[in-house]
Nucleic acid binder design. Sequence first.
DNA 1: CGCTAAAATGAGGCACAGTCCGGTTGGTGG
DNA 2: CCACCAACCGGACTGTGCCTCATTTTAGCG
Lengths: 196, 196
Amino acid sequence: MIALPDRDPRPPAGQPRRADARRNRERLVEQAKVVFAESGADASLDEIARRAGVASGTLYRHFPTRLDLVEAVLAGQVSGLVRLGRELLTDEDEVEALITWLRAALRHGLTYRGLSAAVLNSALDRDDDPVSAWHAEVFEVGTALLARARRSGAVVADAVAADVLKMVGAIAWAAQDDPAQADRLLTLLVNGLRHP
Amino acid sequence: MIALPDRDPRPPAGQPRRADARRNRERLVEQAKVVFAESGADASLDEIARRAGVASGTLYRHFPTRLDLVEAVLAGQVSGLVRLGRELLTDEDEVEALITWLRAALRHGLTYRGLSAAVLNSALDRDDDPVSAWHAEVFEVGTALLARARRSGAVVADAVAADVLKMVGAIAWAAQDDPAQADRLLTLLVNGLRHP
DNA sequence: CGCTAAAATGAGGCACAGTCCGGTTGGTGG
DNA sequence: CCACCAACCGGACTGTGCCTCATTTTAGCG
C-alpha cells in the first residue's frame, strides 16, 4: 500500500496553486475581454491564447470549455447585477424597482457584443445542468423582484420570471449593436408586463 | 474585333441553363432543408453538399454565400407569409389581423431551428444592403398591418414596425426549441402593443 | 539544491469555409 | 448524327479554428 498525499488535491476554482498559472489565468481573462468585445461570443479561442502570449493548450487547461472562459469574463459583472437586485428588493416602488433591474440586466446583456445574452439564454434552458452558480442567483433575484411587483397589483399575474429574463436576453441579442433600439424594445416588454 | 455572343449571358436567378445544373440545385436546396432542420442555422455546408451527392465546389457555384442558400430554402415560406399579410389587410378586426400575422411570422421564425430568425434579424440590420428582395416585402406588409392597427386606436402610437419585427425575430431565436414559451413571449409582446 | 507534481508547450488530428483549375458534359448549330 | 464549346462539375488545396496529448519546463517544497 502506498500512502497518497492527504492534502486536498483540488485547488479552489479560479485560483491555481502556482504563481505562473495564476498569472496566465489572469492574462487570459484579460485578453478574452478584449477579444470578446471585438468579435462577439464566438471569437477565436486560439486568438485569445495568442494575445495572452500563451499556447492554446494552456488556455484549455484553465478553461476546458468556452463557457468556462465566458463565465470568468462575466463573473464580476454578474455578481454586481445580483447585488443591485437584492438592494432593489427594499425599494419603495415595487414596479419601478423591477424596471430598474431589468434595465440593468439589459445593459449587462449588451456587453461584449451580446456575449452574455447568448450565455444567459443557453443557461436558462438547461436549468438542471449546473452550468453555473451565478445564473441561478440571477434567476432567484429576478423571481423575487417580479413576485413583489406582482403582489403590488400593477403587474400582470401570469408573468413568469423565466419568460421575462428570456425576453431580456432575446432583446439584448437582437439589438446587440443598437442600444437605442434595445431600450425601445425593453419599454415594449415593460408595457406588456403592466396590468391592463 | 471579335463578335461576342449577344445572347443575354445571365440566366434567371434560381433557374440555371443546363438540366444537370437545375437538378443539382434542387437536390442542394432539398438536402439543405433537412440539414438546417437538424442542425440549425450554422450547419455544415460541406455536409449539405455531401448529402446532395455533389462536390463542395458545386454548392458554392450555385450559392456563393450561406445566405444565398438560406434564402432559397426559405423562399416559399416567406412568400406565403407575405401573401397572408396582404389578405389580412382586408380583415375587419385590425388588431386581430395584426396578431394573427405576428403569430404566423413567429411560426415562420421557428422553422429550421431558428434559422429564419437569425436571417430576419441580420437582414433587418443592413436595410440599405440589398440582402434580399423578400425581406423588404415582409417589412412592408408588417408596416401596413401595424399602421392599420394603430389607426384603429387600440395599439400604442409609438410602436414601429422595425421594432416589432425585430422582437418577433428575437423571440423566435430565444425560444427556438420551446414553442410554448415562444407563444407566451409573443403574448407578452402583444400586450405591450395594446393601448394602456 | 535536488526532486516532483503542476503547469506549459506546440505539433498534430479533425472539421469546415471557400477558391481554383483541369476535366466532363449538355445541348446547339451544322 | 456529330463536333464543338460554354457551362458545369469534381476534388484537391489553403487557411482557420477547435481541441488533445506526449513531451518538456518550472515553481516551490523540504
